[in-house]
């Protein structure tokens, strides 16, 4: 198992180099330069060139890329073109907000999606099942920013207890977490329902019943764990997507997170910030994927056996 984790961590190195190369090249080929943006409206060419020179943006592609890689090894992504502050510091100051939002949303999503999913599978074709299906269809179809805006309009506007924007206190997280969770829980609930239905009908569940186990025990001890694999994958994917920054939700609720930071940096041709954030997010993505894979091994002994081979 440890060997498997070690191998996977080593594999991250080429992946990260590949990601850096790809993003760096795309940024290189996109038109525009930071000088044009920083010099203000109707800039003179000399000013633009001078700014680009100061930032080191006029040097050749390979020189800049290797300088970037050199910095990465020393955990230094350079300074942001716009703020002239170290990128790493800027990301680290914003990341906790994104992480909190993503983590809380993931927990609420999992609780809502899994519990309602199981309930509607166990009570298939009952009122609860139909009702939850309709509700989940509704929330699957509604974009999270719309739900976010509705929450602001209907709840935050009338209730000063909820802040309209920002996350200065923990209360600021409640509405965005609800907005994201409702959207993500809806498909998760559908998925949990269908995998549970499949496992409930499987032979080993019948064996468990034939042993004399009551329904509750059969569902939790036998069906649930086997239905969990696709559910964990889905939750992992959601969490990853949220870490990448739920840009839209962050924008609606005016949360200064990583997502809005990257979008801003791309718009300003702020290469060090884009690269730094990309790299940072790639690493967190890879760690989450690895965590999900390790979790698989604890759910399904067959997968564990494959890892240890």
């Amino acid at each position: 198992m440890w060997k498997f984790i070690g191998k996977r961590i080593l594999l991250m190195i080429p992946i990260i180099i590949g990601v850096s190369l790809l993003v760096f090249t795309i940024l290189y080929f996109t038109p525009g330069s930071p000088g044009e943006i920083l010099a203000g409206a109707n800039p003179q060419k000399e000013v633009v060139d001078q700014i680009n020179h100061e930032l080191g943006f006029d040097r050749p592609y390979h020189v800049r890329f290797f300088e970037f890689l050199k910095g990465v090894v020393q955990l230094d992504f350079g300074d942001s073109y716009t703020s002239r502050q170290p990128v790493i510091g800027e990301i680290l100051s914003r990341f906790p907000r994104t992480l909190t939002l993503a983590f809380c949303s993931m927990i609420v999503t999992a609780i809502l999606g899994i519990s309602i999913g199981i309930l509607s599978a166990v009570k298939q074709y009952s009122f609860i099942d139909y009702a939850s299906t309709v509700v989940s269809m509704f929330f699957s179809s509604m974009p999270s920013f719309w739900i976010g805006m509705m929450l602001l309009l209907l709840i935050a506007m009338n209730n000063p207890w909820f802040p309209i924007n920002g996350v200065k206190t923990w209360r600021g997280y409640i509405l965005p977490v609800i907005a994201i969770s409702l959207c993500n829980a809806a498909p998760l609930m559908r998925l949990t329902r269908s995998t549970m239905l499949e496992t409930i009908r499987s032979d080993y569940v019948r064996t468990a019943k034939a042993k004399g186990a009551l329904e509750k025990r059969v569902i939790w001890k036998h069906a649930f764990k086997n239905a969990l694999l696709p559910v964990v994958t889905n939750i992992g994917n959601n969490f990853r997507a949220l870490l990448g920054g739920s840009v839209i939700t962050e924008t609606v609720f005016v949360i200064p997170g990583v997502g809005s930071y990257v979008v801003e940096a791309i718009r300003n041709k702020n290469v060090p910030s884009v690269m730094g954030a990309t790299l940072f997010l790639s690493v967190t993505f890879l760690v989450v994927i690895l965590a999900v894979d390790v979790l698989y091994a604890y759910i399904d002994p067959r997968i564990k056996a494959k890892y240890t081979k």
């Binding site: 019948r206 399904d300 067959r302």
Partner: peptide, 19 residues
Amino acid sequence: RGKEISMIFQDPMTALNPT
């Protein structure tokens, strides 16, 4: 079930819980 009357199923490949 299991105590008074128990059952052996047809397909052993799927009759046991894999986890």
